[in-house]
């Protein structure tokens, strides 16, 4: 070849973070790389990890998901066990949406109980998400931190609640997902704030807020790409694994609407809507993906493995 070598090297390395498993489960490590994603260059000790989300509470499932979940159980622990096993998910993302006043209004103790049950039923690494309602989450996170009998990650800490979430995590040895609203500077600031109160860097994941396909995905795409470039270029506070939660792709009308026939079958389309979001996030540099559709977990798992280490 007479043209130049197109490979790139970077001075930085992304922090390696391990999500520990329960007894009999396999822990999963992400990060540790010195290169951009999906390229045969640099060091890449870990492939991207694919997880599945289970949500508590009274929410209508998108058609594509209710099709996929049919007969897999309704009890969170049973459903989680079945879906993780069937899909090969490397970790579980348990969202306690049911504690939200509008989505079930579960008592905090019930939320904590679900966490305990699910973690016993499913040995894979876990991330536990709050319900998104500030006042409830303020009570929920400490209870979850205590109820979890093994180390998990708490999702999420933001600029406002980080003292509370990180405090709960530190007290019981959990990790923290640091959330910021599609803004590279706020992503960095969140990590600095967590560092200020003593959360060790190998227990932090960046959640840059993932817009769904068609609804802001492009902002997430560029922010993830920039966070990764900054981290590899030596900005230590951004050299952390990035988690993309694909939940918003299931809020798109295009993923849900069964009336528009010219859009194709809603069951296939919904799944594709999440899958396209997933691939874009991987191309940008995501290290962990949280999917809801078990077939997407299986597809992504099968493809992001060996050749793309």
């Amino acid at each position: 070849m007479t043209v130049a070598n197109p490979q790139q090297t970077f001075p930085g390395r992304i922090m390696e973070v391990t999500l520990p498993a329960g007894e009999g489960g396999r822990s999963v490590s992400v990060g540790g790389q010195t290169a951009l994603p999906l390229l045969p260059e640099g060091e890449r000790p870990n492939a991207a990890a694919i997880g599945i989300e289970i949500r508590t509470g009274d929410e209508d499932l998108p058609p594509s998901l209710s099709h996929a979940f049919g007969g897999k159980g309704t009890d969170p622990a049973v459903l989680a066990g079945n879906l993780v096993e069937e899909s090969g998910a490397q970790f579980l993302f348990l969202s306690l949406a049911g504690c939200h006043p509008d989505l079930g209004g579960h008592a905090v103790s019930r939320g904590a109980g679900i966490v305990r049950d699910v973690l016993q039923a499913v040995p894979c690494p876990a991330i536990v998400g709050g319900c998104g309602e500030e006042e409830t989450d303020a009570l929920l996170f400490p209870a979850v931190a205590e109820a979890a009998q093994r180390p998990v990650f708490l999702s999420y800490a933001d600029e406002k609640n980080y003292r509370l979430v990180a405090g709960a995590a530190l007290a019981y040895g959990h990790g923290v997902v640091a959330w910021s609203p599609i803004d590279i500077n706020m992503a960095k600031q969140a990590n600095l704030l967590l560092g200020d109160i003593g959360v060790p860097p190998h227990r932090v994941l960046i959640d840059p807020l993932t817009g769904g396909l068609g609804y802001g995905l492009e902002y997430t795409y560029s922010i993830v790409e920039r966070i990764r470039l900054a981290g590899l270029s030596g900005d230590a506070a951004l050299a952390r694994p990035i988690l993309c939660h694909l939940g918003d792709s299931w809020k798109a009308r295009e993923a849900l609407d069964s009336a528009e026939e010219s859009w194709g079958d809603v069951i296939a389309r919904g799944r594709r809507w999440e899958e396209a979001t997933a691939w874009a996030c991987l191309a940008a540099g995501a290290d962990l993906l949280v999917c809801r559709h078990p077939d997407n977990v299986r597809t992504l798992r099968g493809m992001v493995g060996a050749p793309w280490r």
Partner: peptide
């Protein structure tokens, strides 16, 4: 105050 400009 913390670095994000919030009262502690």
């Amino acid at each position: 105050i913390d670095r994000a400009g919030q009262f502690v």
